[in-house]
Amino acid sequence: MTGLVLTNVTIRSPGGSPLFAPLTFGVRPGEIVSLSGPSGIGKSTLVAHIGGHLPAGFVTAGQVTLDGRNALALPAEARRIGVLFQDALLFPHLSVGENLAFGLEPAIRGRAARRAAVEEALEQAGLAGFYRRDPATLSGGQQARAALMRTLLAAPRAILLDEPFSKLDPALRAELRSFVFAHVRARAVPVLMVSHDAEDAAAAGGPVISLSPA
């Protein structure tokens, strides 16, 4: 089956207690599913598990498949699951454009073609002419947009949004939300979003999965 499918997924923290009741749900391509639940229940931990970024010590069970393939058997870098974190995490030693080029899938070859792809993405993000800029000089919103573009350029087969708007002020938040949603919808890949904000889920327009204590 296409999309991201979770079957009976559970996670135990290093302390040993299960974080939430076993989870089963699917995210179809083009759909944005929101994860909600009280803080501390492990929404971000679940996203880290799906992306392959869980720190050592957690014990997990259940299945996660992406387009029918077992995602959990692969290392993070082979899963083709893009993640947008709370922080933009642009690499500080690279320019804005180099950050995007770092993300751009290797299938696009040749310096000119790669540069053109990056410039186009910068333009889409309203960052035309920012190729050589130091990421540290960008505003929070600009950094978040650059981070999204970097993720999209890697041509992921699924995207995880780990509270990407939580650190922005309300005005910027709405603007960035519509920007992110527009772009990820255009990719027609499954999107799973963690958010504390009911408005985020409403704007996403997809199903809301509620995590409940185990």
């Binding site: 392959g52 970024h53 993070a76 870098e77 893009g82 995490l89 690499f91 770092f102 992921p156």
Partner: peptide, 12 residues
């Protein structure tokens, strides 16, 4: 954190 971001982009 940076490693997680880079691995999500497909880097070992």
């Amino acid at each position: 954190e940076q490693a997680a971001a880079a691995r999500a982009l497909g880097y070992s």
